[in-house]
Simulated assay, not measured.
Amino acid sequence: MFTYTIDDELYLKLVDDSDLGELFALTDNNREHLREWLAWVDQTTKPEDTAQYIKASKQLYADSKGMNAVIVFRGHIAGVVGYNLLDWKNGVAHIGYWLAESYQGFGIMTKATSTLMAHAFDQLNMNKVEIRAASGNTRSRAIPERLGFTEEGTLRAVERLSSGVVDHTVYGMLQDEWLAT
């Protein structure tokens, strides 16, 4: 099982059945905060929905197609970070993430994303890490910008959210760029 200690207060671990109650409660308690940028929030209305997510995440990992890890900060789940897709043929890892509102401002997501980048390049030997964020989601876009990603372009009208259809800004970092830092 993937577990990675980042510092004394922060670690990542594969999402597991034991996370069900806390993960659903975190989602439910942050529903309004998350809904603005995450389409799946309105389909996660009961613990069974989170159980399905955990089951699908475990299958994704077993099939080597992706990985979802809970972010544990000071002993509590603060959010999720993972590889939405591991494209082995092309050597590209696609990272996605979300963080509960009360955990913002501690540098948690920057550290968690940086950890997955290192894992993708150093352990999985990926050639590229890609992050897509809704173009209007400045907090999410700040993560790849802070980590030195290149803004590669905009995908127009690619995601339907509760507020309407949004564009995505695409960020990428190549393995040789990572190694140069």
Rank of each mutant, 00 (worst) to 15 (best):
V15R: 06
V81Q: 08
A180N: 09
M126V: 07
H168I: 05
W40F: 15
A39D: 10
T5E: 01
L23E: 04
G79V: 07
F121E: 04
F2N: 06
T169A: 06
E159W: 01
G107W: 00
T150V: 12
L14Q: 12
I143Y: 04
T138L: 11
E32F: 08
G21A: 11
T27G: 10
L147S: 11
S57K: 05
M67V: 13
V170G: 02
E130Q: 15
I54P: 07
I77E: 03
A51C: 08
M67L: 13
N68T: 07
G136F: 07
G148P: 00
A112F: 00
A142V: 13
A51I: 03
R132H: 14
S114Y: 10
W88F: 14
A100T: 06
T45C: 05
L10C: 10
L116P: 06
S114G: 15
E32H: 14
T45E: 01
M109K: 01
E152D: 11
I77G: 07
G148F: 06
G96I: 00
T110M: 03
G21F: 01
E101Q: 13
G79L: 01
R141S: 08
A118K: 13
L60Q: 13
R160M: 10
L124T: 05
L179A: 15
D122Y: 09
Y11E: 04
F121Y: 05
I108H: 05
R31M: 03
S64W: 04
D122K: 12
R74C: 14
Q59R: 13
Y97C: 00
D7P: 06
E32P: 02
D176M: 08
V41E: 02
T115Q: 01
I131Q: 05
T44P: 05
K111T: 00
K58L: 08
T138E: 10
Y11N: 10
S57N: 06
L14G: 11
G79E: 01
L86F: 02
A25G: 07
R35M: 12
G96E: 01
K111G: 09
N127V: 11
K128N: 14
V81C: 12
T5I: 07
W98P: 00
L20W: 03
R74S: 15
L12I: 13
I95H: 05
G107S: 12
A118D: 11
G164L: 02
G75N: 08
G105F: 10
G136S: 10
M67E: 02
E48M: 06
M67S: 00
T44G: 09
L86E: 00
L174N: 06
Q175N: 13
K13Q: 07
A120T: 12
K58W: 04
A39E: 10
V165I: 15
Y103Q: 09
I71K: 06
L14R: 11
H119A: 08
D17Q: 12
A78P: 02
T27D: 04
S57E: 04
A118V: 06
G21V: 08
G164W: 03
V80F: 08
D167Q: 07
